[in-house]
Amino acid sequence: MKFAIALFAAPHQPAARRALRFAQAALADGHEIVRLFFYQDGVHSASSSVVSSQDELDLTAEWRTFVKAHNLDGVVCIAAALRRGVLDTDEATRYGRTAASIEAPWVLSGLGQLHEAVQEADRLICFGGP
């Protein structure tokens, strides 16, 4: 079956880890993930600027490894990301900012990508809140 997974929670919230574990289990069980869509505070989970303590789970690194390993379509909402200071090099150049923290495998794109994913998938699973 095909899943679309939307993450609304920040990386330090348990929901962000739950989304990753769900996505890993879905692929392990032979299902397909048509798209990951990071929205609202979820955009921080795609940021390469996040630094985790050595004795804590590095969730952003785990997400990056997971998305790369399975060649997934990882989309970060561009409007939610820009307002939180999470930019890729194109946007950093466009707005004259010095720091970019979105790089491959993640791409910035619009909310339409979530809508399209929902049409393609059998289920949309949203992770947010605590």
Binding site: F8, F22, Q24, A25, H31, R123, C126
Partner: peptide, 20 residues
């Protein structure tokens, strides 16, 4: 349930609603 059963449950029901 574990995560594998979590995945299966989302398919057993027609829709999934997250209380965000």
């Amino acid at each position: 349930v574990d995560y594998s059963t979590f995945v299966a449950l989302t398919l057993r029901y027609d829709k999934v609603n997250s209380w965000l």
